[in-house]
Amino acid sequence: MSDVTQLIHQYLRHNKKFPHVFCPGCGHGIALGSLIRAVHGLSLSKDEVVVVAGIGCSGRIAVYVDFNTVHTTHGRALTFATGIKMASPKLKVICIMGDGDALAIGGNHLIHAARRNIGIAALVLNNNIYGMTGGQTSPTTPGGARTATSPYGALEKPFDLVDLARAAGANYVARGTVFQAHLLDRLISSAIERPGFNLVEVLTPCHTQYGRKNKFKNPVDMYQALKHAAVPREAWEHFSEAERKERIPVGVFVERDEPGLEERYRVMQAALLARPKAREALPEPNGHDPASTKAKLEGVES
């Protein structure tokens, strides 16, 4: 088991200040470790990996890793990532978002990235709260939970990210937790390796903003709860309604094998480039081919 941390240290930026900015017990650090182990396990070079992050606590992950890193705007990480992937398909693009980031302000980008099946590994670090801005309700805050903007309990129904991504057409959808780090390593590794849009929801506790307001004494309490709640998808499917209460299925939910947008684009482009007259100055209206007209014209011209 040794050398895990030493390996991680090799991928951290040595000119950045550590410890990182995350609060004590924040799961984001564990998720970052999983990401590094997944990249290392796939033998990817640091140069071919791009980490694109949104805004929020999760967004700060990008600054610590020695890859190509882009810290974007709130909710829009997937749009930047889409541009990078289409411009340079050889790069492995990993997009890190939070729950508010990916599902509220960036919800539309998420469903469209999934629909396009663009070749991106999307990691949504779900801590059920807006952490960085002071603990406000997010689209995954459980019903009844107390937050800075739901002091009397959250009224809205939370998003099920797995269902959402599945319906939108993602190639691969999985859910893991930072408590089961080995499973998380495998899920993230698959998401990076596979073609198309691959999403991993990572359940990660936020004690500072969520736990304290919702009767968790300390970070350890939250990890205990996570340990209890997370059950493998296969087992969960056989649970009764009562057993499912307070439980969250983890594992792989969708495994499709459709080519990514960048690959489909490449195929279309290759076909177009193989055609003669691909480099006309301006497109002829109505898809008209000047060569065939010329022959006809010669017959009618007086």
């Binding site: 974007t72 749009t79 930047f80 541009g83």
Partner: peptide
Amino acid sequence: IASLGAVIGASLAG
């Protein structure tokens, strides 16, 4: 918003 995001991404990619 997405359009300009993608344009920025592509520009960063050269």
